[in-house]
Protein backbone atom coordinates (compact mmCIF):
# COMPACT_ATOMS: atom_id res chain seq x y z
CA UNK A 1 0.00 0.00 0.00
CA UNK A 2 2.66 2.52 1.06
CA UNK A 3 4.86 2.89 -1.98
CA UNK A 4 5.86 6.25 -0.55
CA UNK A 5 6.29 6.76 3.18
CA UNK A 6 4.92 9.99 4.60
CA UNK A 7 7.70 12.42 5.50
CA UNK A 8 9.06 12.55 9.02
CA UNK A 9 8.34 15.56 11.26
CA UNK A 10 9.90 16.74 14.52
CA UNK A 11 7.49 17.88 17.21
CA UNK A 12 8.06 20.66 19.74
CA UNK A 13 5.64 21.33 22.59
CA UNK A 14 5.32 24.37 24.85
CA UNK A 15 4.28 23.05 28.25
CA UNK A 16 2.96 26.37 29.53
CA UNK A 17 3.03 30.10 28.97
CA UNK A 18 6.53 31.50 29.34
CA UNK A 19 8.41 28.26 28.70
CA UNK A 20 10.24 27.35 25.51
CA UNK A 21 8.95 24.86 23.01
CA UNK A 22 10.79 21.64 23.72
CA UNK A 23 11.53 18.77 21.38
CA UNK A 24 9.36 15.80 22.36
CA UNK A 25 9.72 13.36 19.47
CA UNK A 26 8.85 12.74 15.86
CA UNK A 27 6.04 11.34 13.72
CA UNK A 28 4.95 10.73 10.14
CA UNK A 29 2.43 12.92 8.30
CA UNK A 30 1.56 13.82 4.73
CA UNK A 31 1.49 17.58 5.29
CA UNK A 32 1.62 20.26 7.96
CA UNK A 33 -2.10 20.08 8.88
CA UNK A 34 -1.87 16.36 9.46
CA UNK A 35 1.43 16.78 11.31
CA UNK A 36 -0.13 19.17 13.85
CA UNK A 37 -3.23 16.98 14.23
CA UNK A 38 -1.06 13.90 14.72
CA UNK A 39 1.16 15.74 17.20
CA UNK A 40 -1.93 16.69 19.18
CA UNK A 41 -3.07 13.08 19.25
CA UNK A 42 0.27 11.47 19.93
CA UNK A 43 2.04 13.96 22.21
CA UNK A 44 -0.57 16.00 24.14
CA UNK A 45 -2.78 13.23 25.53
CA UNK A 46 -1.76 13.92 29.14
CA UNK A 47 -1.93 17.71 29.26
CA UNK A 48 1.65 18.08 28.08
CA UNK A 49 1.16 21.33 26.25
CA UNK A 50 -0.60 24.46 25.11
CA UNK A 51 1.19 24.99 21.81
CA UNK A 52 2.68 22.79 19.11
CA UNK A 53 5.44 23.41 16.59
CA UNK A 54 6.21 20.93 13.85
CA UNK A 55 9.02 21.03 11.34
CA UNK A 56 9.92 18.55 8.66
CA UNK A 57 12.93 16.60 9.85
CA UNK A 58 14.75 17.25 6.57
CA UNK A 59 14.89 20.95 7.47
CA UNK A 60 16.84 20.30 10.66
CA UNK A 61 20.60 20.28 10.32
CA UNK A 62 22.77 18.82 13.04
CA UNK A 63 26.39 19.14 14.06
CA UNK A 64 28.63 16.21 13.18
CA UNK A 65 29.34 13.85 16.09
CA UNK A 66 32.90 13.52 14.77
CA UNK A 67 33.37 17.28 15.28
CA UNK A 68 32.52 16.96 18.96
CA UNK A 69 36.07 17.47 20.23
CA UNK A 70 36.77 20.50 18.07
CA UNK A 71 33.43 22.12 18.76
CA UNK A 72 32.88 21.55 22.45
CA UNK A 73 36.04 20.53 24.26
CA UNK A 74 37.76 23.96 24.01
CA UNK A 75 35.07 25.43 26.30
CA UNK A 76 36.17 23.11 29.08
CA UNK A 77 38.98 25.28 30.50
CA UNK A 78 37.47 28.70 29.84
CA UNK A 79 36.09 29.23 33.30
CA UNK A 80 36.32 33.00 32.80
CA UNK A 81 33.23 32.68 30.57
CA UNK A 82 31.09 32.04 33.63
CA UNK A 83 29.97 35.11 35.55
CA UNK A 84 30.90 33.41 38.81
CA UNK A 85 34.57 33.75 37.79
CA UNK A 86 34.53 37.44 38.59
CA UNK A 87 34.72 39.03 42.00
CA UNK A 88 32.10 41.70 42.33
CA UNK A 89 32.62 44.90 44.34
CA UNK A 90 30.90 44.68 47.72
CA UNK A 91 28.87 47.82 46.97
CA UNK A 92 27.12 45.98 44.17
CA UNK A 93 23.91 44.42 45.44
CA UNK A 94 21.39 42.10 43.86
CA UNK A 95 23.64 40.36 41.33
Amino acid sequence: MNQKEWPLWEVFIRAKQGLNHKHVGSLHAADVTMAIANARDVYTRRLEGISIWVVESKHLHASEPSDQEALFDPAEDKIYRHPTFYNLPIELKHM
Binding site: H28, A29, A37, N38, V42, R45
Partner: peptide, 11 residues
Protein backbone atom coordinates in the same frame (compact mmCIF):
# COMPACT_ATOMS: atom_id res chain seq x y z
CA UNK B 1 -3.59 2.08 9.26
CA UNK B 2 -0.65 4.07 10.66
CA UNK B 3 0.56 4.50 14.23
CA UNK B 4 -0.58 8.13 14.47
CA UNK B 5 -4.14 7.33 13.34
CA UNK B 6 -4.26 4.27 15.57
CA UNK B 7 -3.75 6.64 18.49
CA UNK B 8 -6.14 9.24 17.06
CA UNK B 9 -9.07 6.82 16.70
CA UNK B 10 -8.31 5.36 20.14
CA UNK B 11 -8.39 8.86 21.66
Amino acid sequence: PVLEQDIAITN
